[in-house]
């Protein structure tokens, strides 16, 4: 079951998110640059996923009954590793090996390298289609497990995403949850200026999905959206569009412009870590 069963001594979801941010910053520091702004932005969603919504066994990442979490946006690997470390699926000392030769934690997420990584997602736009197949497969096996697909807003530009979206509704895949990280950022600039996907909620709705849009850095709102997605009694797939802030939690990084691939000076990593440490529950 999920590592967070609501036990009294369990860390709060906010504390989980804080630790995910800390883990991500420690990995970012190893490389000195990377997709750290995405990791800080999606940390709250990952905290809710791994410590509220998902069923899994940390000591058995291949447990047949697990909910499948697909990282379609493979470059967010640093974020998922941070969550998998907090969840106990990857040992914490391994974060020192992030992106290093022969590490199990490559810069772009790959299923063959890392426990808990369900797909190789670096070629963007493939996750949702794979999710459709897994959701169909789970139904065929009469499994109650769900598929969660995390995708970036840039992936909304890929035609394959919308083929999969149409298919999921066609097959009434109520065991499929798609999470869209709407950080309004892509490689060349703001997503809405690259290939505007708005109005996004209406689009998914028109494609036959139960669509919700929430502030992805408001943990309570995210948790409630996940709960609605899981409990809805309608035979349709569910999407949660999460508006997130790049680099959320580290104001001086949030203030940077062009933050798809952040270069951070050595002393700034420590400064960022101190900001995150200062939020630790007493």
């Amino acid at each position: 079951m999920s590592a967070n069963a609501g036990l009294p001594n369990e860390p709060s979801l906010a504390e989980r998110a804080r630790r995910i941010r800390r883990n991500a910053l420690r990995m970012g520091e190893i490389q000195g640059q990377g997709y750290i702004a995405q990791a800080l932005g999606i940390a709250d969603v990952l905290a809710v996923s791994y410590f509220h919504a998902l069923r899994y066994h940390a000591d058995d990442p291949h447990w047949e009954g697990r909910d499948r979490f697909l990282l379609s946006c493979g470059h967010y690997a640093i974020a998922l590793y941070a969550a998998l470390i907090e969840a106990g699926i990857i040992p914490e000392p391994e974060l020192e090996t992030y992106g290093v030769d022969d590490s199990r934690l490559p810069m772009s997420g790959m299923a063959s390298y890392t426990p808990g990584m369900e797909v190789s997602g670096g070629s963007l736009g493939q996750g949702l289609g794979i999710g459709v197949g897994m959701a169909l497969g789970l139904k065929r096996k009469h499994s109650g497990a769900r598929v969660f697909n995390l995708m970036s807003d840039g992936e909304l530009g890929e035609g394959a995403t919308w083929e999969a979206a149409m298919s999921a509704a066609h097959w009434k895949l109520d065991n499929l949850v798609c999470i869209v990280d709407f950080n309004n950022q892509q490689a060349d600039g703001p997503s809405t200026q690259m290939l505007c996907s708005e109005p996004l909620e209406a689009k998914w709705d028109a494609f036959g999905w139960f669509a919700q849009r929430v502030d992805g850095n408001d943990i309570d709102a995210v948790r409630e959206a996940f709960d609605r997605a899981r409990t809805l009694d309608e035979a349709k797939p569910r999407v949660i569009i999460c508006d997130t802030r790049m680099a959320c939690g580290v104001p001086f990084l949030e203030a940077r412009e062009r933050n798809h691939f952040l270069r951070v000076a050595p002393e700034e990593w420590q400064k960022a870590l101190r900001i995150i440490e200062a939020e630790a529950a007493p």
């Binding site: 420690r26 520091e29 190893i30 992106g99 290093v100 030769d101 810069m107 050595p266």
Partner: peptide
């Protein structure tokens, strides 16, 4: 917490 670490020369970003 990590202090001043030596810069890894085998980083993927090279």
């Amino acid at each position: 917490m990590s202090g001043a670490k030596p810069r890894l020369t085998t980083a993927a970003m090279i």
